[in-house]
Write a protein that binds this DNA or RNA. Structure first.
Length: 502
DNA sequence: TGAAATGTTGGGGCG
DNA sequence: ACGCCCCAACATTTC
């Protein structure tokens, strides 16, 4: 492979499906010809392969990435795993002498990437990896004592003391193609799209791809940011950026968002905007960036505590008396609990692949506290149905809601679905949009079920379950489920019904 | 990034 | 006029 031309680099795309702010791509493009590749290897995600909704998104995002590459004189090679074999084969076929990628931070992906890097190095292939997915490299933000933060606010303060993340890189204007393109698998052959077309609601709601991501950011800057602190808790309004699926697939990076929201603005704007409005804008921006902070926090926590995808961070919760209640779980999944705000949110998720953050807290509290069904069942359902499914965020969110994770709500903080609805959907517009048959109050109609549990009684039951944990520590009774090993993984079974028949 | 129960206070109705 | 009581409003505590 010692030829004299400029080095040809394989750029291995994974969850960084963009051309801008992509350090590995930028470096490869500067050096010489680029071979962009995506490798489908869901079995390497160790029990957390992309779910149904995520696969739909991925299909369209890969097509968008290919289109973007073609505009720059290149294209996307698609292959199947195992990843190391695919990369070796591609290097052999093309004469590429280097492979570059953006690091993934999930435990299984990290182990896989390290093995791939070792394998390639033993072939004499140069490997370069970059951080494109998070503002700060997971593992680098630590307390004065050198330990990981377990509470959000001090973590975020430490991030801000760490200084601005680097400015985002522009997309390469042009990519040099290899002399000859190797064999390319059509994206359709990965069969990422559902066989039975349930994705109409997803199509109506989303535009996967980098262009869609940038359009969404631009719209949010112009129309969403000003009222963010007010609107962010209102599922009945479009008060959030809805960038989460684009972030999950890396169609936009957090550094791009961070810098797009900096107060930089032109001198004209600075001169004309009254000081008070400017000060308000600073707070809106900080409130929004704080949400990016939670995303950082999640990745950093998963880095330090990789077992938390399967086990509670706070070990006394190994004893928590979760109920087995398949009928309750199904009612929750299908949006038929008899609590309108819960059902609205679950139906919105099913239909659009997305749920408002406030609604996520409400439905999570309901599953975990009113139904006493394990957060792991909730996490699995979200994993299959969310277009923005992200292992770190999902793990943090569910453990937070269950009270068994970092910076967790004390267990006794139990949401009252009725009050939450009054506060955050005050006109009932969200409920009407998704549960038209519920007719306001808690009165069951012919088509709408009565509440599957009485909230007041369920609350007492949950508090009693909490009381049973007092003074506990260590591993669960019976010792059948050692921390860090996953029954799901070993049996290959899922804890819930598959989303739809394929 | 709760909610409910319990405690405190102060204004006003009324004997 | 005065004090008692009621209770809304707010604060604190508890789960």
């Amino acid at each position: 492979m010692a030829d004299n031309g400029p080095p040809m680099t394989i750029v291995w795309f994974r969850r960084d499906l963009r051309l801008a702010d992509h350090p590995a791509l930028a470096a490869a493009a500067r050096a010489g010809p680029v071979i962009p590749v995506f490798i489908w290897a869901p079995e390497e995600d160790d029990g957390w392969p992309p779910g149904s909704a995520a696969r739909w998104w991925l299909h369209h995002s890969l097509r968008a990435l290919d289109a973007g590459l073609r505009e720059r004189g290149s294209r996307l090679i698609v292959r199947r795993g195992p990843s190391l074999e695919a990369l070796r084969g591609l290097a052999r076929d093309t004469g590429a002498t280097a492979v570059a990628w953006s690091r993934r931070h999930e435990p299984a992906a990290r182990r896989r990437d390290e093995a791939v890097a070792r394998g390639l190095a033993s072939d004499g292939i140069a490997v370069q990896t970059c951080n494109a997915a998070r503002l700060f490299e997971p593992g680098t933000i630590l307390t004065a004592a050198g330990r990981p933060f377990q509470v959000f606010t001090p973590f975020w303060n430490a991030c801000q003391r760490a200084g601005d993340p680097p400015e985002p890189l522009p997309a390469p204007a042009r990519l040099t193609a290899p002399g000859r393109w190797p064999e390319i698998l059509p994206v359709e052959e990965l069969r990422l799209e559902p066989q039975v077309d349930w994705a109409a609601g997803l199509r109506a709601a989303w535009t996967p791809g980098e262009r869609g991501a940038l359009a969404r950011l631009d719209k949010f800057r112009r129309r969403g940011l000003a009222g963010y602190r007010e609107g962010r808790d209102r599922p009945d309004l479009e008060g959030t950026s809805a960038l989460s699926p684009h972030l999950a697939w890396g169609e936009i990076g957090p550094r791009q968002i961070w810098h797009a929201l900096r107060p930089a603005a032109g001198p004209a704007q600075r001169a004309t905007r009254p000081a008070a409005r400017r000060a308000a804008a600073v707070h809106e921006r900080a409130a929004f960036l704080r949400q990016l902070g939670w995303r950082e926090f999640a990745a950093h926590l998963l880095h330090h505590f990789p077992h938390t995808t399967e086990a509670p961070l706070r070990p006394q919760f190994d004893w928590f008396p979760w109920r087995s209640d398949p009928a309750g779980l199904l009612a929750w999944q299908r949006g038929r609990t008899g609590y309108p705000i819960v059902d609205a949110a679950m139906r919105a998720l099913w239909r659009t692949g997305w749920m408002h953050n406030r609604a996520r807290m409400i439905v999570a509290s309901f599953l975990v506290k009113d139904l006493l069904i394990s957060w792991r069942d909730g996490a699995r359902w979200f994993w299959d149905t969310l277009v923005d499914a992200d292992l770190a965020n999902n793990t943090l969110g569910w453990q937070w809601a269950a009270g068994c994770g970092a910076d967790a709500a004390p267990y006794f903080r139990i949401f009252n679905p009725g009050l939450q609805g009054e506060k955050f959907d005050p006109r009932g517009a969200y409920v009407r949009a998704w549960v038209p048959e519920s007719r306001g109050g808690a009165i069951a109609t012919r088509d709408y079920p009565p509440p599957i549990v009485d909230h007041a009684a369920a609350r007492e039951r949950a508090l009693a379950a909490l009381a049973s944990l007092r003074g506990r520590r260590g591993s669960p009774p019976g010792g059948s489920s050692p921390r860090g090993s996953s029954p799901l993984r070993s049996s290959g079974k899922r804890t819930h019904q598959p989303r739809r028949v394929a």
